[in-house]
């Protein structure tokens, strides 16, 4: 494998992948308890890429999705984003509220529920990170958006893009096997300055 200067090497990618594996295990267990279905997730992907390629990694920029965004602070800082395709957001809403309309309008109660879902998933994930890294992390309130994928990712890229052109993206997809429509994507984008610290806390030099 070709390794450019500043790229992540195999060991670093493996460590971040494993951290995500454990975090996703905990988060999907929480989700499974909430929706009463078994949740699976794919092998996490760790990528370091230029800012302009990030929207393409998140999905089709022109697709309209539900996005739940949180930030976390502490010794390491970063962004967590959950993306639910339209059908999955409707299905989650149906499971959680009993509302089975196909209308694409989310009222305050429904957005609150979906935000809370994001809150619990991110909280479970961050608890794993706290335990494994031996540090305290504080998560922000969740924010809800229902818009183009490419537009939802903007505030995160603006946040990260101030200091760098290269961004680390840790990605995992989760889904219910018997129910294709229920699926979502998890993204963790650490602040550029936190990547080295994150690797150090995992016992790997940057």
């Amino acid at each position: 494998m070709r390794a450019k200067k500043g790229d992540l090497d195999r060991v670093q990618v493996d460590a971040l992948q494993e951290l995500c594996n454990i975090g996703m295990g905990r988060a999907t267990t929480a989700l499974a308890q909430m929706v009463g279905k078994t949740i699976f997730f794919n092998v996490p992907q760790v990528t370091k890429a230029g800012i302009k390629t990030i929207p393409g990694l998140i999905g089709r920029p022109e697709e309209i999705v539900v996005g739940i965004y949180l930030r976390f602070h502490g010794p390491i800082e970063g962004n967590i984003l959950f993306i639910f395709p339209r059908e999955s957001a409707l299905l989650l809403r149906k499971i959680m509220t009993g509302n089975d309309s196909n209308e694409l309008i989310f009222d305050e109660y429904q957005t609150s529920l979906l935000k809370e879902l994001g809150n619990i998933l991110a909280g479970s994930y961050l608890t794993v990170m706290e335990n494994l890294l031996g540090m305290r992390l504080i998560q922000s309130a969740p924010w809800f958006a229902f818009d183009l994928t490419g537009a939802i990712i903007d505030p995160i890229l603006i946040q990260l893009g101030k200091d760098t052109d290269q961004v680390v993206v840790i990605k995992a997809e989760f889904f219910v096997r018997e129910d294709e429509a229920l699926r979502g994507k998890f993204y963790l984008l650490p602040e550029p300055n936190s990547v080295a610290l994150l690797l150090k806390a995992l016992g790997i030099g940057a």
């Binding site: 965004y69 930030r71 989310f106 305050e108 957005t111 935000k115 922000s140 309130a141 924010w143 809800f144 958006a145 229902f146 818009d147 537009a151 939802i152 903007d154 505030p155 995160i156 603006i158 946040q159």
Partner: peptide
């Protein structure tokens, strides 16, 4: 130059992107 996490969805203060 839109605000993608609008107040109608996010009543809590300090939503990201409001001024971005």
């Amino acid at each position: 130059g839109a605000n993608i996490f609008p107040r109608r969805f996010n009543s809590c203060a300090g939503e990201p992107g409001a001024n971005l």
